[in-house]
């Protein structure tokens, strides 16, 4: 079962962070997942690689993960250790890819009201809230669909379809 409460330091990005920025095209021939993780968000930020710590949360505006279908983008975030991505909306192929890998994506239309780079965020799936732990201010998150939750709880679609594997 996936934890119903996720807490981590925020890395804040803007709108339309496409999968080219999450995983630049020049590394698309890489097949090793650990190596993919090194390039995570390289096209969007020069600082992310050094500032990021395992379990941190990526926060963004609208349409995060738009563009190319490259699963490498979701793999890089997952293997890098991103705890969750919270955004106002997500590109649909990226959304499926992330859930298939067991990476929680949280839709939060008012996240910009509480986003603060480097501050701690708590996502509470039971109370359907995102909370900035410094200011105490909270905003609503959209519930995760039953189907997506089933995939997440299994640890991704691969474990769901092939339980012998894990």
């Amino acid at each position: 079962m996936v934890s119903r409460i996720i807490t981590g330091k925020m890395h804040v990005f803007g709108n339309n962070i496409d999968t080219d920025q999450i995983y630049p095209g020049q590394y698309l021939d890489v097949t090793d997942h650990k190596e993919m993780a090194k390039y995570c968000l390289q096209g969007a930020s020069d600082k992310f690689a050094e500032e990021f710590q395992k379990g941190d949360i990526v926060v963004a505006g609208t349409n995060f993960g738009c563009g190319s279908s490259r699963e490498n983008a979701a793999i890089a975030l997952k293997v890098r250790g991103v705890g969750a991505v919270v955004a106002k909306s997500f590109g649909r192929i990226f959304y499926r890819n992330a859930y298939n890998l067991g990476l929680p994506l949280i839709i939060c239309p008012r996240i910009d009201e509480i986003a603060g780079h480097g501050e701690e965020l708590t996502i509470d799936m039971d109370r359907e809230l995102a909370i900035n732990n410094r200011t105490g201010k909270s905003v609503e998150i959209e519930p995760i669909s039953e189907y997506a939750m089933k995939i997440l709880n299994a640890g991704g679609i691969k474990a769901l379809l092939n339980p012998k594997r894990s």
């Binding site: 490259r70 699963e71 192929i93 499926r96 890998l101």
Partner: peptide, 17 residues
């Protein structure tokens, strides 16, 4: 369009959700 793992599901079952 889909990602690699969704397509793998089609390879295995011929179907997708």
């Amino acid at each position: 369009g889909v990602g690699a793992t969704d397509l793998a599901c089609i390879l295995k079952t011929g179907e997708l959700w």
